[in-house]
Amino acid sequence: MTVRTVLLVAAALISVGLYGALSQQVVVMVMMGLELMLNGLILAVAGLWWFCAPDPSGQVLLLVILAAMTVEMAMGFAVATSLHRIRRSDLTDTAADLSG
């Protein structure tokens, strides 16, 4: 277990999540892809913290990532609920106008 192996596993998780976020049609499945990417990010930051600079402020960054995951999930669920209510749909293709 070195910083390289930890980052390698994190890279695999991020890539699998990226595939899901790019390819899935259902809003919740896209969110799952994003969650998987953040999962990899948690591992990468935890590995970098332990192997490179194990002072407490690094852990604070991990907590911020966890908070970002929570916000992403809560808002994603809320948007998906609203979409389902208004359009009776849960597909990203029917919500293309939300792309901003």
């Binding site: 695999a12 998780l13 499945m29 892809g33 999962n39």
Partner: peptide, 9 residues
């Protein structure tokens, strides 16, 4: 972790 991640999709 990785196989379970793949299984999601």
């Amino acid at each position: 972790a990785v196989l379970a991640g793949v299984a999601v999709f």
